[in-house]
Nucleic acid binder design. Sequence first.
DNA 1: GATGAATGAGGGTTCATTCAT
DNA 2: CATGAATGAACCCTCATTCAT
Lengths: 203, 203, 203, 203
Amino acid sequence: MATTKSGGRQEQSSERRDQIISIAARLIAKRGYSATTVRDIADEAGILSGSLYHHFSSKEAILQEILHSFMAGLLGRFEEIVAEGGSPRDILDKLIAHAFATIESQPDAVGLYQNELSFLARQPGFEFLGENSERIEALWLAQITEGQKVGVFRDSIDAPIAYRFIRDAVWSTVAWYRPGRGHTASTLTDNFLDLLHKGLLAD
Amino acid sequence: MATTKSGGRQEQSSERRDQIISIAARLIAKRGYSATTVRDIADEAGILSGSLYHHFSSKEAILQEILHSFMAGLLGRFEEIVAEGGSPRDILDKLIAHAFATIESQPDAVGLYQNELSFLARQPGFEFLGENSERIEALWLAQITEGQKVGVFRDSIDAPIAYRFIRDAVWSTVAWYRPGRGHTASTLTDNFLDLLHKGLLAD
Amino acid sequence: MATTKSGGRQEQSSERRDQIISIAARLIAKRGYSATTVRDIADEAGILSGSLYHHFSSKEAILQEILHSFMAGLLGRFEEIVAEGGSPRDILDKLIAHAFATIESQPDAVGLYQNELSFLARQPGFEFLGENSERIEALWLAQITEGQKVGVFRDSIDAPIAYRFIRDAVWSTVAWYRPGRGHTASTLTDNFLDLLHKGLLAD
Amino acid sequence: MATTKSGGRQEQSSERRDQIISIAARLIAKRGYSATTVRDIADEAGILSGSLYHHFSSKEAILQEILHSFMAGLLGRFEEIVAEGGSPRDILDKLIAHAFATIESQPDAVGLYQNELSFLARQPGFEFLGENSERIEALWLAQITEGQKVGVFRDSIDAPIAYRFIRDAVWSTVAWYRPGRGHTASTLTDNFLDLLHKGLLAD
DNA sequence: GATGAATGAGGGTTCATTCAT
DNA sequence: CATGAATGAACCCTCATTCAT
């Protein structure tokens, strides 16, 4: 009845569910998945831990749902950005800007993703993490290599390595970025792009 | 004779202890602290879990010892590099080079540090993590600001933010760097410094 | 409806809780607190040891609850007896009679109290033991000293010491009194009061 | 070579042994047998816990030795007192006086005996506790019944019950008697005998 | 005599999960 | 939908004891 179309993964929608997912994302982002108990989550939701199982089939299912919807949204937007076209540099800038915007809008999901990815990627049921990561990498990397081909990016740089440096610097921001301390996603983007484009050295 | 009383933390040195620490570091780096059990560690050491407590007072004490000796060594070397003098740029390059070298020589400790830092820093008994991190930040940051003052680094860049981008890009490497796949600490350093110094854009 | 919030200590009342408390009191009285395991208690209750923690936060909490309710009831009744008034001798006799009645009605709690008091009184969380013991001592002692003042009790006797002798003789009875062997609380009381009042010597 | 004659129970004598026994008695008296670990004992003796097993075959053996030598000495002295003869009243007074003297000279052994007796008496290897207790009871009881027969003690009193009241009042003193607070074994004896002989009531 | 490393059993406790109500 | 009781497995840790050195 409340079941949506999206294949296989059962996704019942309700306020309670969304509330629980939000709470779980926050706690897991802060303490880590293993260190967060279903009781912690239930307590914050104001119910008993056993009652969580009316909404989710398991603790792991909560995590899957958080990450799945996060990654689906992220990949979708990245694909849109690429589809909207532009120069490799413009597209890369937009990808980066969207990453910083995502850090600002969904810090819990991003933090959780950063912390748990390495452990989860090999776990059964989380194969989608690796798949989506590869697709995102392909999108970004294409801009860099294309930029090198057309001469806008220096080609002395190893593109896959550059991608990883960029990716890690951007997403790690979630660990220290706190809104309302003089920085916004926008200023972070500006600073990062300035450094990335022109480098640290004065001419 | 084999007893070290350096620093008051670790009481005794022995092959067994070092072996256990090494095993624990590897497992914790791979699975996370919460998800690594003392039985896992003991199993790999070929002893019973209870026997671990002949060498360490608690699971947490193992983690403390790993991180404490790692951070003490790291901070010590960073301080040496600064003490050896040079231009801000040269010193910063050396700091970065040493970070990549550390990733190569102690990937477990670095990985563990990257994954658990945010959770641990506020835990009692782990205050030294925050303290050492701040001292390292101060060392690195001083090079950047000094470089800006003398004009070798562009001063349109916000130094603390630049530091964080650099730090995160460098240390996150531990999550994907695998020796013997065409890269070494040295080539990683070269690639990173090239990108950092001159930026991504062609002139 | 079944929830009592009397006193803040015990949170919830239920048959299960009471049953477990009763079992625990019996086992601890027989074997001692340290030698009684939560598994022993759970086994007798017909549940798994972990399930105990649905009802109590810790093994210690069970002990606290046993002792707290025991001492609260005891002190309350003693205070009532004093409040009902009478001559010091009558009141002291009634206090003693109630002690023997308590030994008969709650042998486990009394036995447990006798065995574990000296160890527990200094433990954190059990301060109420010492406090209540002092209040009971004050009640009893007041009767003895008042009796000496009005001349009904011989005043060659050191009252605090006499109190301790009386107290110990009475409560220690729990260690050997077995109902249905020719003695009841009532005959014990009679025997004790006869000896206490008139002494062992014939005139 | 250091083996003494006393049959069956191996009793090697040495300063170390005596020191350990003394430490163990003190700790067990304070915390209880179950709550006292061999490590606690070894720590206070300045050796490692495993090294205790060069002196004693088990933790239980230490306890046995403490109690065995304590009870042997006690029973022996009680038998001497009876053998020395005198009126039932004089003998009973001397027995009581010796009990208080023992509390003063061997508080740990007495305290340990008081606390652990009920649990230990049924344990294999501790049958001597019950046997000796019965022989002591017989000695004391004989004085009371003989005193009643010759008319020096009131015979309205049930002798076995009176014995238990006396025994418990006397030995329980160990739980609160602290030397150097205005009382000695001698004054305790005087107070107790005064109360016991003449009772609490004024004529 | 003592050490230091280890054992094996068991300690109290936590936790994800189930299910009758 | 939620509760409350329970499960079963696992967790970290303790302890008496053993034994080669």
